[in-house]
Amino acid sequence: MSNETFLTIRGFAGADPTVFHNESGRVTVVIRVGVTARNFDRRLNTYSDGTTAWYSVRCYGDLAENVSRSIHKGSPVLIRGRLSPRTWTDKDGRTRTDYAIAADSVAIDLNTGWATFVRTRKQSLEPIEGEPAHAASADDEAPPPSLDAMHGEEIAEPVEPELEESAAGVLQALA
């Protein structure tokens, strides 16, 4: 094992992802993630926001493509990756250092909302005996039909409860 620093951060995307394509067609996506600590003041018995730390998060390959489609400004995210310094010289000739995270995992933080997962396929599947072969296509990236979570029946559109509704209201809507 090498002497590298891996970390996990929890924060919010500060802007929509920036997508870069290189000459060979590979994709790199960069997102800026702000992480603000919440501090508890025992004297006042209240929480307050600490200083916001900003990280550049770099994603490559399939992860980059999926992040570009899934993460938007304000998205609550969990990032795991390798921390690495990037050093450059600014326009005034001063040496600057920025700490970037080369992400190996990016997730939506479900503490603040819900999400729907759609699996993508980039390669052909092995045929199952008795079934025709299937090649990956653009149709593979379309969302699957929605199912009623309680009954397993297909429904016309997903139920999207208003944020203000109570859990009882959501259950009543599904019944």
Score class of each variant (00 low, 15 high):
Val30Ser: 07
Asn39Phe: 14
Asp139Ser: 15
Glu164Val: 03
Arg80Tyr: 11
His134Pro: 05
Asn66Lys: 11
Thr8Trp: 15
Thr28Trp: 08
Glu153Gly: 00
Pro17Gly: 05
Thr51Ile: 12
Thr116Gly: 09
Phe20Thr: 14
Gly74Asp: 00
Gly14Trp: 08
Phe117Tyr: 03
Gly169His: 07
Ala135Glu: 14
Gly14Phe: 07
Pro161Phe: 06
Met1Pro: 01
Val27Gln: 11
Asn66Val: 04
Gln123Arg: 14
Arg80Ala: 12
Gly130Trp: 03
Ala173Glu: 15
Glu129Val: 01
Lys91Val: 11
Asp41Thr: 06
Gly11Ile: 03
Asn39Lys: 14
Lys122Ile: 00
Gly93Phe: 07
Ser137Ile: 00
Ser2Pro: 04
Gln123Ser: 14
Ala138Gly: 09
Pro76Gln: 10
Ala133His: 08
Ala168Asp: 13
Ala138Asp: 14
Glu4Asp: 11
Ile108Pro: 00
Ala13Pro: 04
Pro161Asp: 12
Glu141Leu: 07
Ala175Asp: 15
Ile31His: 01
Gly74Leu: 04
His72Glu: 14
Ala15Arg: 11
Val57Ala: 07
Ser105Thr: 08
Asp104Tyr: 14
Asp16Ala: 03
Pro127Ala: 04
Asp49Trp: 03
Pro145Met: 15
Ser70Asn: 08
Lys73Gly: 02
Thr52Phe: 12
Asp90Val: 03
Asp139Asn: 12
Glu126Thr: 08
Ala103Gly: 01
Gly169Asp: 15
Glu165Phe: 01
Ala13Thr: 06
Ala175Tyr: 08
Phe117Asn: 11
Thr5His: 11
His134Trp: 05
Tyr47Pro: 02
Pro76Leu: 08
Arg32Lys: 12
Glu65Cys: 09
Ser124Asn: 15
Asn66Phe: 05
Ser24Cys: 01
Gln123Asp: 12
Phe6Leu: 03
Gly14Ala: 12
Gly152Lys: 06
Ile79Lys: 09
Ala167Trp: 00
Met150Arg: 15
Thr8Cys: 12
Ala115Phe: 04
Glu129Leu: 01
Thr116Asn: 10
Ser75Asp: 11
Ala107Val: 02
Asp140Ile: 00
Ile79His: 10
Pro158Asn: 14
Gly81Ser: 07
Ala167Pro: 05
Arg32Gln: 08
Trp88Cys: 01
